[in-house]
């Protein structure tokens, strides 16, 4: 495992460097930048000092430096005017639009997003796991058919549509407004028990909305994986030897059926932060997704870049964790691939 972990890290570090470079290229791809657009607005408003201001701001934010220097300074590989001050040093840069450090702009949105999406993942697993196992062990029963139908409905319904329908029904029939992730007067205020309670009261609607399709998908996959395992020779042999059904199910097939879920951790981690962007817009949730969309729209390069880099970092870490878990749990050769040594 030491060899495997070392090799995996050796791939991970250059991968992160390449991703950071691509991220920087992508956020600089649109013509112009936030300052150029802002200066154009100032000029159109008749601000004659706009050009001088542009030059000043460009120098202050390092936008007049060569591209590669800007990139290296952003990552923290090259010293800026105030020494090393980039992502590696924990400095996420400056948001032009909000005119404050990115860290401050993001504030507790990351925490709220994390809470929302982690709850969604837990909800998904808690609901899908028993249903998936039940459907697989009662294949072609009426309950299996009913759950399968529900699963297809869940898969076929877009999250944002479900959010709109729920908002409409709650408003028209119950007179409730279910938007937002907490009562508006707690926004921007420090955390307290009342604020936490307000978040918990609002959390269940977005959790159901965001979690429905994931739950349905997971039920389908768990059922299919488990059915594959249950038909294998070793299960038949264990049954024939009189092993108790529940013990047999938990000890071997269920474990093997979980491999795809472990492999999926890589996709899960970034979705904890970004997975609910569209639903957040529809439900007016104060999470990171809408802010990322707005930053991309307004070319707020450091805000958007830091967000994208953070999501990429989570993806790479997620892949790393899932690969290590898979290697530890199932260090098996795929015989069709063949070993080279």
């Amino acid at each position: 495992m030491l060899s495997y972990t070392a090799r995996r890290i050796l791939i991970m570090i250059p991968t992160l460097l390449v991703i950071s470079f691509l991220t920087f290229v992508i956020i600089r791809l649109p013509p112009g930048d936030y300052l150029t657009n802002r200066i154009a607005e100032l000029k159109s408003e008749g601000d004659t000092a706009a050009l001088e201001k542009a030059a000043f701001l460009r120098h202050q934010y390092g936008l007049d430096r060569p591209f590669i220097v800007q990139y290296a300074t952003w990552v923290g590989l090259w010293p800026g005017d105030h020494g090393f001050s980039g992502l590696l040093q924990g400095d996420w840069g400056w948001s032009f639009e909000y005119d404050m450090p990115v860290k401050q702009v993001v504030g507790d949105r990351l925490m709220l997003t994390f809470i929302l999406n982690l709850t969604t993942i837990l909800f998904t697993w808690a609901v899908a796991f028993p249903i998936g196992v039940y459907a697989a062990t009662h294949q072609y029963s009426w309950s299996d058919h009913g759950l399968t139908l529900l699963g297809y409905l869940g898969l076929a319904t877009p999250n944002f549509l479900l959010a709109l329908v729920l908002m409409y029904l709650a408003n028209v029939h119950f007179g409730l407004s279910i938007g937002g992730i907490m009562d508006p007067h707690y926004l921007g205020r420090p955390w307290s028990w009342d604020k936490a309670r307000s978040v918990l009261q609002h959390l269940w609607i977005p959790v159901i909305v965001i979690g429905t399709s994931g739950t349905a998908g997971m039920i389908r996959r768990l059922r299919a994986n488990l059915l594959d395992e249950l038909q294998k020779q070793y299960v038949v042999t264990a049954r024939a030897r009189g092993m108790p059904p529940f013990r047999l199910l938990v000890k071997y097939p269920l474990r093997m059926a979980l491999n795809p879920f472990i492999a999926d951790i890589g996709n899960l981690l970034p979705s904890v932060i970004s997975g609910s962007a569209i639903v957040s817009v529809v439900l007016s949730l104060q999470t990171a997704g809408p802010m990322l969309l707005e930053a991309l729209r307004s070319l707020d390069q450091y805000l958007a870049g830091s967000f994208l880099m953070f999501l990429s970092l989570l993806t790479v870490i997620g892949m790393f964790i899932s690969d290590l878990l898979l290697a530890a749990l199932d260090p098996r050769i795929r015989l069709s691939g063949g070993a080279t040594k």
């Binding site: 495992m1 060899s3 260090p331 795929r334 691939g337 040594k341």
Partner: peptide, 16 residues
């Protein structure tokens, strides 16, 4: 006897 591979298709790995 375990097998570890860096590639997703688990080819080209090594045994331990």
């Amino acid at each position: 006897l375990d097998y570890y591979a860096m590639q997703r298709d688990r080819s080209g790995g090594w045994m331990q």
